[in-house]
Write a protein that binds this DNA or RNA. Structure first.
Length: 479
RNA sequence: CCGGGUGUUGCCCAGGGGUAGGGCGCUUGCCUUGGGAGCAAGAGGCCGCGCGUUCGAAUCGCGCCACUCGGACCA
């Protein structure tokens, strides 16, 4: 008989009443991560790392398709590099980790462990760039970075995390601008079509832009608690770094010019976004495209003759059809397995028992909407992939509907604050002034997220301070 | 960095100066499997770390660390 739910070992906190605890429970109990021995660090366990690998593969393919190549730059950066771009130092200095000794000897110049790689890449780019023929140069790297954060949460903010950072240099400003926009769109497309996570794309305010950038663009996703997650950024660096690092080329017209530069990045934070976009009271729910296991096969009454064999056969069929399957033939009870695999977010569960075998069918249950249906065993190689597509789309649509239901317009400060405090994104007019957003942040914890492109004004005045409005802006509380 | 909470077996927790406890999980066997089964026998602990008080500390005191929640800060 059913036990008291508190006795379940893998019970997770209630998503509606204790969202932060729910998040922590989910990441730990589904074995995505564990805490590392050093404060703020996380161990990414195989199930979590498998998600990251799927993200990498599919994102990397998009980078290659847009003309980028991968490289790798050193993790240790001379202190002097960091100091070359004024805003960059100011932005990153408070959170860098230092290496001051090599073995037992004090280093002549302290080294920083990269918090981001603009500086060291600029140093190399300066060496490699002489002619307009050397441009553009478009290199991406997959690596780790370290930022000494005070408050940490698995995936969302950790002292060390994995990411990709693209760094490009171009002969003209127009070309660099086009690159910045293209990569923002690559990110948007990836978020929507692979992660099933709708995003708002737009430009960040001056206050929120990257340290050293001319302009920063972001994609912002809504989490189930109504908070915003900055899920990816694309920066127009102009000539700030090329001037600081002397990256020059001889142009066609015979004159020496500084290059125009961009950088863009996404991180393992995307996994946090995935969890908080799709998760529910039962735990994780993974979109099929990033699910390490897309279909879990559960033999029912496996001790009866023929059941396990049939389950294996189905597994082989699906594997051959390119589906990531796992056959759970452990001797846990069926009920336990149902709960376990739902918690781990597997998109489709396939049950096969004596009854099914007699009838030449199996039962599938979808993680996204809990629908169960019976499918003929013949044709699974076609019906299952189709079902996975349907889950992928269904998850995106549900997330989109959620976001739309939680995004409102506001025309004055009081209603803006009230709506955000109810867990909503607010679309409102904004004056563009730093003091205005700083005050709002200080008093309410609400920040500007980004300014959508080509948005029609909805008012004359700033919803926040009442001055003349300049931009449409999304406001929210952020992770 | 500031404030609150928590550290006892893999997990959840009880205990409260004198032999280390329970439930779950784990191992073995039987049995069982369509929504968290059952019986039996086992294994598993430097009671977060350090210092102090004491004949004796998991227990009392001080310090530290980690996790966690909230806030401040921040790509």
């Amino acid at each position: 008989m059913a036990k008291d739910k508190n006795e379940f070992v893998n019970q997770i906190a209630d998503i509606d009443t204790d969202f932060p605890q729910w998040y922590t429970d989910v990441v730990l109990k589904t074995e995505l991560v564990d805490y590392g021995p050093v404060k703020g660090t996380m161990v990414i366990r195989p199930y979590g790392y498998a998600i990251w690998e799927l993200i990498q593969q599919q994102m990397d393919a998009r980078f290659k398709a847009t003309g980028h190549v991968n490289g790798y730059f050193p993790m240790l950066i001379p202190q002097s590099f960091l100091m070359k771009e004024a805003e960059h130092v100011e932005g990153f200095a408070p959170e860098v980790a230092w290496v001051t000794k090599g073995g037992t000897e004090e280093l002549a110049e302290p080294l920083v462990i990269r918090p981001t790689s603009e500086t060291i890449i600029c140093d190399m780019y300066a060496k490699w760039t002489q002619s307009w023929r050397d441009l553009p140069l478009k290199i991406n790297q997959w690596c780790n970075v370290v930022r000494w954060e005070k408050t940490t949460r698995p995936f969302l903010r950790t002292s060390e995390f994995l990411w990709q950072e693209g760094h490009t240099i171009h002969a003209t400003e127009e070309e660099a601008t086009a690159e910045v926009m293209q990569m923002l769109d690559v990110y948007r497309d990836f978020a929507e079509n692979v992660l099933a996570m709708p995003v708002f794309v737009g430009q960040k305010s001056e206050k929120e832009k990257f340290a050293g950038a001319v302009a920063t663009y972001s994609m912002e996703a809504m989490m189930k608690d109504g908070k915003a997650l900055q899920a990816g950024t694309s920066h127009n660096l102009g000539q700030h770094f090329s001037q600081a690092f002397n990256i020059k080329f001889l142009d066609k017209d015979g004159s020496l010019k500084y290059v125009w530069q961009t950088s863009w990045g996404t991180s393992t934070r995307l996994i946090g976004g995935l969890i908080m976009t799709h998760g529910d009271k039962r735990g994780l729910a993974l979109p099929p495209k990033v699910a390490p296991i897309q279909v879990v096969i559960l033999p029912i009454a496996a001790f009866k003759p023929g059941v396990t064999e049939k389950a294996r056969e189905v597994a082989e069929t699906l594997k051959a059809a390119g589906v990531r399957v796992y056959l759970d033939d452990s001797d846990n009870s069926a009920g336990w397995k149902f709960n376990q695999w739902e918690m781990k977010g597997v998109p489709i569960r396939l049950e096969i028992g004596p009854r099914d075998i007699e009838n030449g069918c199996c039962v599938i249950a979808r993680r996204d909407n809990f629908e169960k249906k019976t499918l003929p065993l013949a044709g699974l190689a076609e019906t299952i992939p189709a079902e996975l597509d349907s889950v992928q789309k269904g998850m995106y649509e549900r997330a989109l509907a959620f976001r739309e239901a939680h995004t409102v317009e506001a025309h004055d400060r009081a209603s803006l604050i009230a709506a955000v405090n109810e867990g909503k994104f607010v679309r409102a007019m904004w004056c563009g002034e730093r003091e205005c957003e700083e005050q709002l942040k200080r008093e309410t914890g609400i920040s500007t997220r980004n300014m959508p492109f080509g948005a029609e004004p909805i008012d004359e005045v700033c919803a926040c301070c009442g001055k003349k409005a300049k931009h449409v802006m999304y406001f929210a509380k952020a992770y």
